[in-house]
Structure formats: structure tokens, C-alpha cells
């Protein structure tokens, strides 16, 4: 897993609520056997017409907006457990998603892939959407060690919650498998005690 510690970037705003994983990546694109390449089908049915021409009004087709931070409406990532949703965002170049509420499985999947979901209050989210609307190039700074997100233009800062273990993983690029492999003996002892 790639490390993520500090990040400064402009944002892509997606002010839609209840974005489900079927919309992030539809089931018909789950047939790949690697983790790469899902970015091209990210938000496929919102991004392209059925004849594969881009929908001009969709945010990802608007060159004004770019960056590695996606800012989305509440309840982002609900629905199916497909990790492909996190992979497609990551493959597209997104490293941080900021919203006021995340679905539980998506949040776990994202963290397991070095994609940081940041939960902020509704007021801060609204403020951020407004700032992006004023200036699409507004920079947002994320610090994993400090657990803060800061809007450069206004200096507004919010701290966010992050499980201490998960924080360590993100900063060091460790994943859960590294940890679980490191406690192999404990697992074997547990198995032995069950027999």
C-alpha cells in the first residue's frame, strides 16, 4: 500500500447524496482480474452516454476541476461491498474523499487501499463546496499525522477522526495483512487452543 501523510491539492466537487457503489462502478465492469484500469469506468453511467461519448455536464468531464481530492455529499459509498469502488477512485487519481457521512464497508475498503475518507460536519462541507465554486483551483491541505484538513483560501481547519491503528498504517504504508502476518504465532496458538 502507498503511504499517505501530507497532501495538498485542488478538489473535484460532487455535491450529490447517497452515491452508491453501483454508480461509482457498475457491476458490468467488475470483470477484470487486476486492480488497475478501473479509473476509466469510474462513474461510468454519469460520465458517458450509452454510445460512449462524454456527458459534457458531468464534473469529471469539466477540465476546470482537477486534483486528487473528491468532495462528495453525505452517505458516500453505500450499497454493495465491491472494493472495486475504492480501486476505481484510486486508479483515477483520487487519494482523499471528503464527505459528511460514509457507508461503513466503503470506508473500510478505502482505508485498506490508501484512500483516505475524511468525515467533516455539514457546515464545513457546505463551506468547502462554496469555496470550490468561487475558485476551482482552491487548495486543500490534508495532514494525516495531525488529523486535520485545511482550506488554504480561508484558513478554515477541521480535525477528523481516525482509528490510531489505521493512522499508523496510512503513514507507514502498512496494510492489515502485514499486521496479521506479524501475529502468526498468536493465530496458531488460538487455533491450537480450539482443538
Amino acid at each position: 500500500m502507498e503511504k499517505i501523510e501530507l497532501l495538498k491539492s485542488s478538489c473535484i466537487p460532487l455535491p450529490i447524496e447517497d452515491v452508491d457503489t453501483d454508480q461509482i462502478i457498475p457491476a458490468r465492469f467488475l470483470k477484470a482480474t487486476t486492480k488497475e484500469g478501473f479509473g476509466q469506468n469510474l462513474f461510468r453511467d454519469w460520465r458517458y452516454h450509452s454510445n460512449d461519448t462524454p456527458k459534457e455536464d458531468f464534473i469529471l468531464n469539466n477540465s476546470i476541476y482537477s486534483g486528487s481530492i473528491l468532495v462528495a455529499g453525505k452517505n458516500f459509498g453505500c450499497g454493495s461491498s465491491r472494493e472495486h469502488a475504492a480501486w476505481s477512485l484510486y486508479d483515477f487519481g483520487i487519494r482523499v474523499v471528503i464527505s459528511s457521512f460514509f457507508a461503513d464497508i466503503f470506508q473500510g475498503n478505502a482505508l485498506n487501499n490508501g484512500l483516505l475518507p475524511i468525515t467533516v460536519d455539514d457546515a464545513f462541507l457546505d463551506h468547502l463546496f462554496q469555496e470550490i465554486e468561487k475558485d476551482p483551483r482552491v487548495q486543500v491541505e490534508v495532514s494525516v499525522p495531525d488529523q486535520t484538513v485545511r482550506i488554504s483560501s480561508t484558513g478554515q481547519v477541521r480535525s477528523f477522526d481516525l482509528d490510531p491503528y489505521k493512522k499508523l498504517c496510512l503513514i507507514n504504508g502498512y496494510d492489515d495483512i502485514d499486521y496479521l502476518l506479524s501475529i502468526k504465532e498468536k493465530i496458531e496458538q488460538f487455533e491450537f487452543s480450539k482443538i
Binding site: 482509528d163 490510531p164 491503528y165 489505521k166 499486521y179 496479521l180 501475529i183 498468536k186 493465530i187 488460538f190
Partner: peptide
């Protein structure tokens, strides 16, 4: 099997 600092469990 185990508990991790911060509350997660194996």
C-alpha cells in the same frame, strides 16, 4: 484472537 490498540479486534 487478539485486540489492537484503539479497539480493533482480530
Amino acid at each position: 484472537v487478539d485486540r489492537v490498540d484503539g479497539g480493533m479486534e482480530v
